[in-house]
């Protein structure tokens, strides 16, 4: 059996804070090398919990009750903390949601961009500087020399997100977790950032887990998609299949709910109450 890069199987978790309420119900998904998978769902669907589990940063209040998260054949959930730390950041990295808070306001970009290169790869500051310049060019920052010497507050939101993307790819990870990386950005910048992530991913052959609540984003950059509701996988498959031929009523309703740029006067179509009732019945929640 050729192991997938990532294989989550039967992952279940409960929230201890909310009296043991299930937040993941028997979730399974797998990811091949170089694949981009969208993880879609509304707030509380469990998509961020999966992302956190991948990064080994589940909050203390979340308790995994079953399942495995195999990365290259090794279970991240049972791995000794020391080994996990070696994988995190180097093999699995994160593009965070909000570029405003994800860069340290008190440190120059160069220092933050080269931390991993110096700590993990043992590069000298000169080597790390050269590598950082290259990375910034790769993410299409026009004046990389200036940006390296800048503090975060001197950069725009889009620029910061580019820096964070460069940082996420700095150590040539095998998997990048992108946690709603465009929600905090302008619509015009969103498109550029999406394209950039796609380009970087192709050039580096990196697999990406793309957490989002936007099916439009999924259509643009994901090879495959997993749709979650209340911690349960509702529908999964190749993006084209799922979007063109949705099987579940919830998927259909979600697609209908999105705004139509070609018909701005059409208004929004909320997901019908009946669909939620069907979902709850299927999952077994009242």
């Amino acid at each position: 059996m050729t192991a997938s890069l990532l294989s989550i199987s039967g992952l279940s978790a409960v929230s201890d804070r909310e009296g043991g309420m299930p937040i993941l119900r028997d979730v399974s998904l797998s990811l091949e090398r170089g694949e981009v998978r969208g993880l879609v769902g509304e707030s509380g669907a469990g998509k961020s919990t999966i992302a956190k589990a991948l990064l080994g940063i589940l909050p203390r209040t979340v308790r995994v009750t079953g399942g495995t998260v195999q990365f290259e054949g090794r279970d991240l959930l049972t791995m000794p903390a020391r080994e996990l730390r070696d994988i995190m950041g180097a093999q699995i990295s994160l593009i965070p949601q909000d570029p405003q808070t994800a860069l340290n306001p008190g440190r120059r970009i160069e220092a933050q961009l080269t931390d991993g290169l110096r700590l993990r790869r043992g590069l000298s500051s000169r080597e790390a500087h050269a590598r950082a310049l290259k990375l910034l060019e790769e993410v299409q920052i026009r004046d990389p020399q200036r940006v390296l010497h800048a503090f975060p507050h001197e950069l725009s939101g889009g620029m910061r997100q580019r820096v964070l993307i460069a940082a996420a790819f700095a150590l040539e990870p095998k998997l990048v977790v992108a946690d709603e990386p465009t929600t905090a950005l302008d619509v015009t910048v969103q498109k550029q950032i999406l394209r950039l992530i796609r380009d970087m991913q192709k050039v580096h052959g990196t697999a990406v887990i793309f957490v989002t609540h936007d099916l439009g984003v999924v259509a643009q950059i994901c090879d495959s998609v997993t749709l979650l509701y209340a911690g349960k996988v509702i529908e999964a498959g190749a993006t084209a299949d799922v979007l063109q031929n949705p099987k579940h009523a919830y998927t259909k309703a979600l697609m209908a709910a999105g705004p139509r740029y070609d018909r701005p006067d059409a208004g929004l179509e909320p997901v019908p109450q009946a669909v939620f009732e069907q979902l709850r019945a299927e999952i077994g929640i009242r």
Binding site: L55, I57, R85, D86, M88, G89, A90, S93, L94, P96, A102, N104, Q112, D115, G116, L119, R120, L164, A167
Partner: peptide, 8 residues
């Protein structure tokens, strides 16, 4: 969080 992921 990001710095922690960088191995600090």
């Amino acid at each position: 969080l990001l710095a922690r992921l960088k191995g600090m």
